[in-house]
Simulated scan of single mutants.
Amino acid sequence: MAGEAIDRESESSPGDLSRLLARVQRAGDHAESVSLKAILDSLGRRSFAPFLLVAGLVTLAPLIGDIPGVPTLMAMLVVLAAAQLLAGREHIWLPSWLLRRRVSRARFIAVIRWMQRPARWIDRLLKPRLTLLIRQPAHLPVAMTSLLIALAMPPMEVVPFTANGAGLALTLFALALLAHDGLMALLGYLLTFGTLALVIVGLA
């Protein structure tokens, strides 16, 4: 069931960002490039949060998130994962062409190192609280809002800074699920609607 996928967050992944980044850094071992499949496999694909976390961090990251088309690619990842979660699928399927997308290891490691310092600061803020905002059935609005963000991400590529806002919102939702922190989910909702408002104004 969809709720079970959310409830398994604490079983499938660590609840802090620093350990998650350490796990991701080992993705693909010592290959010259790292695939999306290797990154997701390093986090575990039995739950929704890793999909949100990868999409959010990649969209936020310099050297990768600024590449044209990357926010749209991450949007596709979230759309597929969120739609299957809302449909009640227990295991999330992704097409092989998406899983084969790769980035050079040098760029990948540079991004991970860039994230490590803010990750330690973020970890000090995370703790279980306001859990009613992420427990069933409140996990469904998280999935629906993530889907809304993803559907709006392609136009964000032409409105400055809005894709970064979307990436941060997805990251907040992922951390909320992993750390059982409803405050992160609340911040994610606020950031989502603020970002969508900027997109509407920017496209008007």
Rank of each mutant, 00 (worst) to 15 (best):
M184I: 04
L73K: 12
L125T: 13
D66A: 09
F51T: 02
A138I: 03
L133F: 14
A138E: 06
G69N: 07
S47M: 01
P137R: 12
E9L: 03
D29N: 10
L177T: 05
R19C: 11
P95Q: 06
V158A: 10
S104W: 11
K127P: 13
A27V: 06
I112S: 00
G182A: 07
D7S: 15
V199F: 05
A169I: 00
S33A: 08
R100P: 09
S13T: 15
I39A: 04
A179L: 10
F173M: 11
R101K: 12
A106C: 12
I134L: 14
A138G: 04
S104N: 08
P141A: 10
P50I: 00
H139P: 00
Q116I: 06
D123N: 12
S13N: 15
P71V: 05
F48E: 00
A169F: 01
I122P: 14
R45F: 04
L168N: 02
A166S: 14
L98P: 13
L175W: 04
I92S: 04
R129M: 05
D41I: 01
H139A: 12
G165W: 00
P95N: 05
Q116Y: 04
R117T: 15
F108M: 10
R26M: 13
V58D: 01
T131L: 10
T192Y: 11
V111C: 07
E4Y: 15
A22R: 11
P160A: 07
A31Y: 00
T162F: 00
R23L: 12
V111L: 11
A31L: 08
M184N: 11
A138W: 04
E11P: 06
L170E: 02
R45Y: 01
G88V: 10
L203Y: 11
A176H: 03
L98T: 10
L126M: 14
A61H: 00
L148A: 15
L198V: 13
S104H: 08
L20M: 13
V58S: 01
L77I: 13
D66G: 07
W93I: 10
L187E: 09
T145D: 15
P155R: 05
P154T: 03
L52P: 03
A185I: 11
P95W: 08
W93L: 13
H91Y: 08
P71A: 01
A22D: 14
P118V: 14
A75W: 03
A119C: 10
A55H: 02
R102E: 14
L130R: 11
A166G: 15
P50V: 00
V158H: 11
G15F: 13
I122R: 10
L36N: 02
F161A: 11
V70G: 02
A110N: 08
I149V: 15
A166D: 04
F51A: 02
R19Q: 13
